[in-house]
Amino acid sequence: MTLVLSARDVRRDYPVAGTPVHAVRGISLDVHAGEWVAIVGPSGCGKSTLLNLLGAIDRPSAGSITIAGRDVARLGDAEATRFRLTGVGFVFQRFYLMPTLTAAENVELPMAEAKVPRVEREARARELLGYVGLAGRADHRPFQLSGGEQQRVAIARALANRPALLLADEPTGELDARTGTEVIALLDRLNRDGTTIVTVTHDEELAQAARRVVHVRDGAIVDDVVRRPLPPAAPADGAARR
């Protein structure tokens, strides 16, 4: 099995005046290709902080993070930006779609930044929007889409540059139960088709859908349960991704 993510003794301290906050206190975690890991835990236990570290949005105070062979913890700002563009796909609780762009343009945006030729990125955006069930909404702008549809566009966008890993922080946090279920079903389909996923969530339904659940408390892993093992014929190429 190919190791996609390997975190070793990762720490993140926020230097707050008085008592510094130790948001992540020595987390080690391995994620293999094709896995779907849900990180759960009480509010404030450091889940988002950890995911931001994995996604090169933030830098750890100590420890190492290797994703698809790259040491993410030591990247400079420009390299981290580049890594966020092509190395990982990030899905946010609040979608963060560009309000002035259509769904298709939102999906194309990371590809345009990565200098993917226009024809190619238009085709890929169409393919991805079809995959998330929004083929007919390509020319709609975010305000014309429901929350669930916006999140599906955001998932399509996160996959645009074929990242090694999909990270999602509370992807159902802004959605009602029904649209949340749709998004969970989409993540499940993505994972079955080979996408490696790490989600952070409070959503019990989302946690139940994942193959593996990692429990975090006070910045440390307290439990790690594999609920659905990877099928024996796991993708051979390692860079299993849609």
Binding site: F90, F92, P110, E113
Partner: peptide
């Protein structure tokens, strides 16, 4: 600034 922050999170460079 939220849009700019989102673009930066998505990996768009400062220059872009």
């Amino acid at each position: 600034r939220r849009d700019v922050g989102a673009l930066r999170l998505l990996g768009l460079s400062r220059a872009t």
